[in-house]
Each structure stands twice: as structure tokens, then as C-alpha cells.
Design a protein around this nucleic acid. Structure first.
Length: 424
RNA sequence: GGUGGGAUGGGUGAGUGGCUGAAACCAACAGUUUGCUAAACUGUCGUACGGGAAACUGUACCGCGGGUUCGAAUCCCGCUCCCACCGCCA
């Protein structure tokens, strides 16, 4: 959620920034500011009247105490009329507040100055590439065939137990999952991120805090009996640790990581995009989350990018980094970098990580703030990124490292898997 | 699931209709004293929003939402959460 104070004072810059998303900013911002003006006018008037009523009440109390009953009654009569006016104004103010809130919820974050204008994924900028695209043998197949051939993942079994998008991992397939989770967590801890194991269901307030609610509730699985949501990412519970937190000074920097399963309804997805591990309803992910002083955000983002790069290099996967254009970024993000690995048998790039800075957009909703040296209350910045999401990594590993006889495990992972090849 | 108790500022905790944005104590911060530490003393010490260049000022907030009243932390109604004990269970 954008800060209303900033919209008041930086109207033009904000509209310009939002235009990079092809969001109809002009209309929204103007309407918002008109409502805000009305609100402030009415609010001031209301408070003047309330103040008057408070004086009446005090005065009447005095009169009663002194036994001047008749005078008191007269004053009561006078205050009645003012009170009518008060309740009228009150409902106007409340209505305006609701409308302003509603508008604010619908306005996405303002893109960072580095972000280019653009409508879709085609306008994303490739800013970095690394690694060689492997040459596969002639009979190379996509990962869903490999998974079946070597009995690593059983998709049909998942359908039987739950439904499409809930695969069953078994044997070395299951061990590979466990190895990757452990590997990613160790790497994150070594980079100074503190490990958390949060709940994987959250309440409504948490969904709201990170911006999934009220708009994107279709994305989450919902349990009406208990009014709880399954998390779509560890970002939700971990960031909400800091909901309604006021940090006492400026010397803070929180680096957290968490492994959780993630649940996404992915309503509307279909076709080859959802084949095999490409898009699942349940998947595993290690997430890194940072709470930073605004001055430190740019540096923190760089560090996170380096961290994810490092993971992919250790896994020996070819990858590229894209800086998303305005139109392709998530609602809450000010700037997002996507990491894509090349999956050689499918011959396509798969998104495996998304690293974003949100600046004050989340912290404004979360009420996550700190005190400056001169005792001012200021919103913190939040950042997060996947480090990493498993399924597409597994897809790329299987596809890229296959040969005629089996699948090789990258060196860095062998200590975690306990085997160096997958064979019959 | 059953029964009972509770929710007040960073913490403990007083407050049953106006003198309470809220006692007292603790913690924290600043200062005085001191060779240093400690102690003592003095002062400061909630959040949000509005108005104002600022000093400052207005309003709201005692779990949440409604009601009664000229006036509510205090009375009434509904809800949520927490704690304890019992039952069931990993």
C-alpha cells in the first residue's frame, strides 16, 4: 500500500512511475486526492464540533456539581443540536475513509527508477547470463519421462491421493528433494540468514499484511471451518513476524530464511506449462526475507542476487537474470529480478527464483517501523527472494545431467544426496 | 470439547460514570553528583491522524465492534484472543 502522505506531496512522480506498469494512474490518483481533500476538510470540521461538545460536557458536569440543575438542562438542549450535526459529519468522514482505503488497496507499488516501462514478459531486460547450454544425447527426454523411467516421481499417484499438481516423490527422487532443501538452507545460514520454521497456515491478518488479501485470495487455499489460509510462500508467515513492530532505533538488519511447502491454486493454468514439475499446487521452497533500513535496501538486494547466483553456479545450471519491466512485476514489488534456468530437454527457460524489493509497500500494511535518531517513526523496507524453489530446479537437473545410462548429480549436492548418479 | 479466570502505556499494575491520556512502581533516555563503578537526586518518557513554517494545538485510542448518557477505561449487548484446570490426541 502506498503512503497517502507521499501521494499528496509527490503526485506527478508517482503517476509517472505507475505508468511504467501501464496502470491507469492518472484516474486513480486524482480520484484519491480529491477524496482525500474532502476527507481532510470534513475531518477538521468534525473535530472542531467534537471539541465543542467536549466543552459542553465538561461544563454540564460543573453545573451539576454546583447544583445548578436548570442551567445544566438548558446546556443539554443546546448540545443536542450540535450532536446531530456531529453524527452527520461522522458518517460522511467514515464513508470517505472507506473509499480512500479501497482506492489505496488497488494501487500497485511504484516501480524503481531502474525499471523499464513495459506491458509483458517480452519487455523484460536480460541483465546477466552464466553457464553453457548443455548438448544432450540423441535419446534425451523431458524430466517427466525421466522421473518415470527412474522411478523418482509418481504423478498419477498424486492424482489418486489428492489431485493434479500434487506429485509423490519416492526413492532417490525423495532423497533429492531432501538434499536440495538441506543444501539451500545450509547455504542461506552460511550467508548469515537465520533459519525459521514457521506455520504453513496463516490467518487473515497475515494474508493482508503481505498483500495476498484482499485482492489475490483466489491464489490461496482457504479453510473456511477455521478461517485459515495455506501459505503460497514462506514470505507470508516470515514477513508477518514483523507485523505491528516498532523497532527502537536505526541499527537493525534482519536476515531470515525458511523452508516451507508452498500451496498455490493456480486457477486458470493449463497446457504444456503445467506438464510435469513446471507448475504445481504444492511445492517446496527455501525463501530468504530481509527487513532493512531504507539506506541499505539497494545493497541488500545486490547481496541477495549474489546469493542466488552462487546457488545456481554450485548446481552447475545455466541461467539468466531478468529485470522485470513495469507490467510484469508483482503488485507489491518496486523492483524484481527473475532467475531462469535452462532446461535442456524441454528447451526452455524456467523461472526458479524471484528476488524483489518492496520498499515501504509491505511495511505500510504491516505497520513495521523504526525510530530515527530524532525520534521520528519511519517505515522499514522489506525484501525477499526464493533461494530456491525446488521443482523446476529438479526438472533442469534431471534434464541437463542425463546421459544414456542415467543422471549425474552435481558435485556440490553429492554430500547431501549420498549418491552421485541416478541409474536403474 | 467442558469449566473457570483474564485482556489498561515497553513491563508490573491502580482505576466502577466527569477532577483519568490514564496513579504508583520498574525499565529506558538525558542531566547533576562522583577518580571509576555503584547509589542518590532532577527531568524526559505512548500511538495515529488533522491543522500549523514552527513553538504548538485539536481529535481518537484502556482487546475488537455496537449501544446507553450532556459525558464511558468505568454501565449494557455481541465478538475475538489469551491463561489455567479437566477430557481427547500427536
Amino acid at each position: 500500500m502506498l503512503e497517502i502522505q507521499k501521494i499528496r506531496s509527490n503526485k506527478e512522480q508517482i503517476i509517472e512511475a505507475l505508468n511504467k506498469r501501464f496502470f491507469p494512474a492518472e484516474k486513480f490518483i486524482q480520484e484519491l486526492l480529491d477524496k482525500d481533500n474532502q476527507w481532510r476538510k470534513n475531518k477538521t470540521e468534525l473535530e472542531t464540533i467534537t471539541s465543542e461538545l467536549n466543552k459542553f460536557a465538561k461544563n454540564i458536569g460543573e453545573l451539576m456539581k454546583n447544583g445548578q440543575k436548570e442551567l445544566a438542562e438548558q446546556e443539554k438542549e443546546k448540545s443536542k443540536k450540535i450532536k446531530e450535526k456531529e453524527s452527520e459529519l461522522k458518517s460522511v468522514v467514515e464513508e470517505l475513509e472507506k473509499e480512500i482505503q479501497l482506492l489505496l488497496y488497488q494501487i500497485p507499488n511504484t516501480p524503481n527508477e531502474l525499471v523499464k516501462a513495459g506491458k509483458s514478459a517480452e519487455d523484460n531486460e536480460e541483465i546477466f547470463t552464466q553457464g553453457q547450454i548443455p548438448k544432450l544425447h540423441e535419446k534425451a527426454v523431458p524430466h517427466w519421462d525421466l522421473a518415470q523411467q527412474y522411478n523418482l516421481i509418481n504423478f498419477e499417484l498424486g492424482v489418486k491421493i489428492t489431485g493434479a499438481g500434487f506429485p509423490v516423490y519416492l526413492g532417490k527422487g525423495a532423497k533429492l528433494q531432501r538434499a536440495l532443501i538441506q543444501f539451500f538452507l545450509d547455504e542461506a545460514c552460511n550467508a548469515g540468514y537465520e533459519e525459521y520454521m514457521p506455520p504453513i497456515v496463516v490467518n487473515e491478518a497475515s494474508g493482508f499484511g503481505t498483500g495476498q488479501l484482499p485482492d489475490k485470495e483466489g491464489q490461496m487455499y482457504y479453510m473456511p471451518a477455521d478461517d485459515l489460509y495455506m501459505i503460497p510462500t514462506a514470505e507470508v508467515p516470515v514477513t508477518n513476524i514483523f507485523r505491528e513492530v516498532l523497532l527502537p532505533d536505526e541499527n537493525f538488519s534482519f536476515k531470515m530464511c525458511a523452508y516451507t511447502p508452498c500451496f498455490r491454486r493456480e486457477a486458470g493454468s493449463y497446457g504444456k506449462d503445467v506438464r510435469g514439475l513446471n507448475r504445481l499446487h504444492q511445492f517446496d521452497k527455501v525463501e530468504i526475507v530481509r527487513i532493512e533500513h531504507p539506506d541499505n535496501t539497494a545493497k541488500a538486494l545486490e547481496e541477495m542476487l549474489e546469493h542466488v547466483k552462487n546457488l545456481l553456479m554450485k548446481l552447475e545450471l545455466p541461467f539468466r537474470i531478468l529485470r522485470l519491466c513495469g507490467g510484469d512485476m508483482g503488485f507489491s514489488s518496486a523492483m524484481t529480478y527473475d532467475f531462469e534456468v535452462y532446461s535442456a530437454a524441454q528447451q526452455k527457460w524456467l523461472e526458479v527464483s524471484s528476488v524483489s524489493r518492496f520498499d515501504t509497500f509491505q511495511s505500510n500494511r504491516l505497520k513495521l517501523r523504526f525510530k530515527t535518531k530524532d525520534k521520528k517513526t519511519v517505515l522499514c523496507h522489506t525484501l525477499n527472494g526464493s533461494a530456491l524453489a525446488l521443482p523446476r530446479i529438479v526438472a533442469a537437473l534431471l534434464e541437463n545431467f542425463q546421459d544414456e545410462k542415467g543422471i549425474k548429480i552435481p558435485k556440490a549436492l553429492i554430500p547431501y544426496t549420498g549418491f552421485d548418479r541416478i541409474e536403474h
